[in-house]
Design a protein around this nucleic acid. Sequence first.
DNA 1: AGCTAGCACTCTAACCAGGTGAGTGCTAGA
DNA 2: TCTAGCACTCACCTGGTTAGAGTGCTAGCT
Lengths: 356, 356
Amino acid sequence: MLDDRKLEVLGAVVVDYVQSREPVGSRALVERHHLDVSPATIRNDMAVLEEEGYLTQPHTSAGRVPTDKGYRLFVDKLASVKPLSVAERRAIGSFMQGAVGVDDVVARTARLLAQLTHHVAIVQYPAPAPAELRHIELVRLAAGHLLVIVIRATGEVDQRVAECPDMDEADVTVLRGWVNGAAVGLTPGRAVEELRRLLATLDPAGRRRLAPVVESIAEMAGASTSERVVVGGVPNLARFGVEYEALIEPLLEAIEEQVVLLRLLGESARDNAGVYVRIGAENEYTPLRETSVVSSVYTPLASSEGGYASLGVVGPTRMDYPSTMATVRAVARYVGRFLGAQTADLDVTCWGHDEH
Amino acid sequence: MLDDRKLEVLGAVVVDYVQSREPVGSRALVERHHLDVSPATIRNDMAVLEEEGYLTQPHTSAGRVPTDKGYRLFVDKLASVKPLSVAERRAIGSFMQGAVGVDDVVARTARLLAQLTHHVAIVQYPAPAPAELRHIELVRLAAGHLLVIVIRATGEVDQRVAECPDMDEADVTVLRGWVNGAAVGLTPGRAVEELRRLLATLDPAGRRRLAPVVESIAEMAGASTSERVVVGGVPNLARFGVEYEALIEPLLEAIEEQVVLLRLLGESARDNAGVYVRIGAENEYTPLRETSVVSSVYTPLASSEGGYASLGVVGPTRMDYPSTMATVRAVARYVGRFLGAQTADLDVTCWGHDEH
DNA sequence: AGCTAGCACTCTAACCAGGTGAGTGCTAGA
DNA sequence: TCTAGCACTCACCTGGTTAGAGTGCTAGCT
């Protein structure tokens, strides 16, 4: 149904439209891309493409514009992954140079992605490493709430409020000793086992009191993926003109609701290998049906057990997919390696070049 | 120079303009406000007000619009503080009901403020309470960086990276014991004194190694005000129409740069008593010269020693100052009391009414 | 069968009146 | 000191015209 030339036409339309932001007509197409046929021929092709749902026209007598389906085909079939420019490579390297600690890495990554793509960047916190627990702190908050703080050997700090029967300061002190004695030095999984085992040896009353605390620790330990995300480049929303216009509100809304962002990134796990793209209405969160998400898992899946985390950008459906995808992929790989090396306690100072 | 009626006219112009978003003319003024004079008289008054710089007109035959100076006078002289509606009162109370922990309180406050004012809300983290230190954790990051984590009796967690000569895991363990032994249980101030004292007893080599750690702790302890801010209601930027239009970019930019936000709030300390308003160009951060900031210190200054923290909203110069100011003040007072009560380990369940 | 040239048709965007009305400043009079 | 009246200004709306880009279709060419 779609011969080579039609595909080529589709690709050309996408490219031109992305660049010019205006519906693209048959004449312009033959001129800008050296298609050796006449505009009339192209018109016929475009008519077919339109019938099939890959293109559409805003009104009769206007040029064509790709539909979501059109972009989809483009991304799947046509997008040859643009290699990054040297400048971009260098930017990635120097941006991360000297990053210390997970917070810092994540924050820098968000900025970096936003700066390179001119879109809004979303970076999910990496799942906490399955590193041993260093310390557990318990703090009495008001009325029956206990704040449980867990520190891991990697410096990651996690906290959660446990609701449990009121205790006085002395109780808490004892409990703290008990919990730390049992769990510190163990990997999260083992620590939870141990705590549960000890819990079972207590009398029912004691068990009822301590169970919530143990459970909070279990929750923190068991989280295979972090729920925290960091966003960067929000000003890009306003900077890049009409482009975003209609997207600003729903996007800001989504950013305020971190949960939505997580769902957006979540999907990307599906395609471990590379970059996952969701275009327009493919998105199940309807307010964002005019935006695309380009994301990638960046945690080294090889050394899994630690769960995965994604990063990506979100922008208008009319985006430069090839280069955005290339950038996201490159950053994901780099950050993955960087973190991997860092938690392996190596010092990463140089970064060669990305093999495709 | 400005008799009573002229002031009244200015006030009327501000009120009408804020409501209608359109330049207001002399006839409309006499009709909507029961000024018992003719439009012509008002015109003369307005001419004077314009000469003095309180009003301006977009073009010759249009109505008048307040200038920054006009708003300023309005705020200083005319704004009778609107009492909050019952619904708003209730909203405040119920919004904070059941808030647990500082993080939660701050987050809820931001949402609350944004929702009540329809502007962008900024809430500075309260300065850490001068509560005793509970635990200090040290984690070796890559190459000569040590992550120092401090937990206070209130559950507040603070962390900072100290650059210091490389040590191995054993060194760190010893150091951790040393630091905790010296500092835990003391108030931050005392703890730092103690650490410094102990530091001085060491030989020069040891001193050089440990000094950076002690200094990071000192920095965290000494911070009289927190550098963290939380923002809420960003989607309001897009929701409330043309209103914001031109402000979106600079505001998003400012939000991305937390430092700017801090500076915006910082000033409010000047006027401890109540609400601080900065209008348009009064703002030293020029990109925001078309926005106003309404802020207030919310930490109970009585129980000072703990430094102060502010909250506020930022919106277009054309905002409803009286009610925004009232809301900000009410929220600031409520949150202040709430936090005060909470850290005093009391359970705040009911909130009477706000005395002006 | 596929491509091209030509042509009539459609629809938007831009431009250019001209009219309308809100609002002003000024002057003269109460 | 205020008011009434009047001439003037200027944004904005309306409607009609034009220009141009782009299409679909048909007929002819390879």
